[in-house]
Simulated scan of single mutants.
Amino acid sequence: MLEIITSPLLQPIRHGFFTRKGGASSGIFAGLNCGTGSSDLAEVVAINRARAAEAMGISPAALVTVNQVHSADVVTVTTPLPDRPRADAMVTATPGLALAVLTADCQPVLFADPDAQVIGAAHAGWRGARDGVLEATVEAMEALGAVRTRIRAVIGPTISQRAYEVGPEFVEGFIDDDRDNARFFANGKGDRALFDLPAFGLHRLRGLGLADVGWTGHCTYSDPERFYSYRRTTHAGEADYGRLLSAIRL
């Protein structure tokens, strides 16, 4: 049985932040690993993606993903993509297509303007969020007829502050951008700090003047039964990790 987290902010647009439950993968990937870039068996990943597509009411070919590279690049999608372009966000006004991003601690962000029937999806890790992928997604939605004061955006399961330890050079980069970014860091052990990625994402989204923004409140690191986590895998010394899928469709 698949487990799909939804948000009332995005209703009535069909969407879901999938957990790892209900998939065909085994071992360290056990569950719904949808990452074609993982070392999991390709045919098993295809089964998992097909299950997610069925849950979204579409064919596997209509489940659109990109080659995520931690950029601020956005693709406007009008048909299924035969090749996955290098980008980290997508927008569409085409019914029947589901925009999907893959994450394992980074923020999956789903956007919708139900009145204009325009949607978006972004993969927003610290680098993408800092470089403007959220802002670029909203601008691309506007180019399709969306109005930002009607757009709603929701951050799905992501790593929370208590699990996100970073070094002083990481903090300095954010402070150099904006001194007010200090609010997103708490003191850790020694010279380490704890970064609040979802709070930073919400801050960037709120600065766009959208209708409403939110976070589902789920931490990927602290709930291994439900979520994959790159950082948890690294700490455990495991060879690879699964990827969670988040999708939205018209």
Results as ranks from 00 to 15, higher is better:
residue 157 P to T: 05
residue 59 S to Q: 13
residue 209 G to E: 07
residue 135 E to Y: 02
residue 23 G to F: 06
residue 155 I to W: 01
residue 84 R to T: 12
residue 119 I to A: 08
residue 166 V to E: 12
residue 220 T to Y: 00
residue 72 A to G: 06
residue 130 R to V: 04
residue 97 L to Q: 06
residue 2 L to V: 14
residue 216 T to I: 14
residue 130 R to W: 04
residue 220 T to M: 04
residue 27 G to P: 03
residue 89 A to D: 00
residue 103 T to G: 10
residue 120 G to T: 09
residue 59 S to F: 03
residue 63 L to G: 06
residue 121 A to Y: 12
residue 233 T to L: 01
residue 195 F to E: 12
residue 175 I to D: 13
residue 249 R to A: 15
residue 109 V to G: 12
residue 19 T to Y: 10
residue 19 T to N: 05
residue 114 P to S: 13
residue 247 A to V: 07
residue 19 T to W: 10
residue 98 A to T: 01
residue 181 N to W: 07
residue 200 F to T: 02
residue 98 A to Q: 02
residue 242 G to Y: 01
residue 26 S to M: 04
residue 82 P to T: 09
residue 222 S to T: 14
residue 41 L to K: 15
residue 241 Y to H: 12
residue 56 M to V: 07
residue 4 I to D: 01
residue 68 Q to M: 14
residue 52 A to M: 08
residue 73 D to P: 00
residue 132 G to A: 05
residue 140 A to D: 06
residue 199 A to E: 03
residue 94 T to C: 11
residue 143 A to H: 11
residue 109 V to N: 12
residue 119 I to F: 04
residue 117 Q to Y: 00
residue 121 A to C: 05
residue 218 H to E: 15
residue 14 R to K: 15
residue 28 I to V: 15
residue 136 A to N: 15
residue 133 V to Y: 07
residue 198 P to D: 07
residue 131 D to V: 07
residue 107 Q to F: 01
residue 98 A to E: 02
residue 85 P to R: 06
residue 179 R to G: 05
residue 12 P to G: 01
residue 239 A to D: 14
residue 8 P to G: 06
residue 162 R to F: 08
residue 111 F to Y: 02
residue 88 D to Y: 03
residue 195 F to P: 10
residue 111 F to L: 00
residue 139 E to C: 02
residue 163 A to G: 00
residue 166 V to R: 10
residue 26 S to I: 05
residue 102 L to I: 15
residue 122 A to G: 02
residue 218 H to S: 10
residue 206 R to E: 14
residue 90 M to P: 03
residue 140 A to K: 13
residue 17 F to R: 08
residue 124 A to N: 09
residue 229 S to A: 03
residue 126 W to T: 15
residue 202 L to W: 04
residue 120 G to Q: 07
residue 11 Q to L: 15
residue 89 A to Y: 09
residue 119 I to G: 04
residue 103 T to I: 11
residue 60 P to E: 04
residue 49 R to F: 11
residue 245 L to M: 14
residue 168 P to R: 11
residue 122 A to I: 01
residue 207 G to Y: 06
residue 193 A to I: 00
residue 205 L to E: 01
residue 101 V to Y: 05
residue 229 S to N: 02
residue 93 A to K: 13
residue 31 G to V: 01
residue 161 Q to S: 09
residue 184 F to Q: 10
residue 85 P to A: 09
residue 60 P to T: 09
residue 185 F to L: 13
residue 230 Y to H: 14
residue 38 S to L: 11
residue 5 I to M: 06
residue 158 T to L: 01
residue 37 G to I: 13
residue 112 A to K: 04
residue 205 L to F: 03
residue 96 G to K: 06
residue 20 R to M: 01
residue 193 A to D: 07
residue 52 A to I: 08
residue 68 Q to E: 11
residue 101 V to S: 06
residue 154 V to H: 03
residue 94 T to R: 15
residue 81 L to I: 01
residue 181 N to I: 08
residue 157 P to V: 07
residue 171 V to D: 09
residue 170 F to L: 09
residue 162 R to P: 00
residue 36 T to D: 12
residue 69 V to H: 08
residue 241 Y to L: 00
residue 59 S to M: 08
residue 42 A to Q: 13
residue 244 L to F: 02
residue 236 A to C: 09
residue 131 D to K: 11
residue 77 V to I: 04
residue 120 G to H: 10
residue 205 L to S: 06
residue 97 L to W: 02
residue 205 L to P: 03
residue 124 A to R: 05
residue 136 A to W: 10
residue 27 G to W: 07
residue 153 A to I: 09
